[in-house]
Amino acid sequence: MPRFGHMMSDEQVAAVTNYVRSNLGNDYTDTISPEEVADLRPPEDQ
């Protein structure tokens, strides 16, 4: 699968991650912040 992280902002990645983690049969109560996304991105995507 090709990489597409550079096409989404940290805020967008956090929103999608939080949606998937709290819907679609999942039940996570914690959320991911845009700052955490930025910390997890590979250096070439920053």
Rank of each mutant, 00 (worst) to 15 (best):
V37P: 04
S33V: 06
E35F: 05
L24K: 11
V16R: 02
G25L: 01
E36P: 11
S9A: 11
N26E: 08
V13S: 01
R21H: 12
R41W: 05
M8G: 00
R21A: 11
I32V: 15
E44S: 08
T31A: 09
S9H: 03
E36Q: 14
R41K: 07
T29D: 15
P42I: 00
M1D: 12
T31Y: 00
Q12M: 06
D30Q: 11
E35M: 07
P34W: 07
D39Y: 00
N26R: 12
P2Y: 12
E35Q: 14
N23Q: 13
G25S: 04
D39V: 00
R3T: 06
Q12N: 02
T31I: 00
T29A: 15
D27C: 08
E36I: 01
Y19P: 00
N18H: 10
V13L: 10
M7Q: 13
S9K: 02
D10E: 11
E44T: 03
D27I: 05
V20P: 00
P34L: 00
S9Y: 10
M8F: 15
T31C: 02
V16N: 04
Q46A: 13
M7Y: 15
P43A: 11
G5C: 09
Q12S: 13
L24P: 00
M1S: 15
D10R: 03
Q46D: 12
N23H: 15
A15E: 10
A38H: 11
S9V: 02
D30E: 13
Y28V: 04
I32Y: 08
I32W: 02
A14R: 12
S22Q: 13
S33G: 08
Q46L: 07
E36V: 02
T31K: 10
Y28K: 14
V20C: 10
R21Y: 08
I32L: 11
R21W: 07
V13D: 02
G5M: 06
D10W: 03
A15Y: 01
V16G: 00
E11V: 00
P34R: 02
Y19Q: 05
S22G: 12
G5N: 05
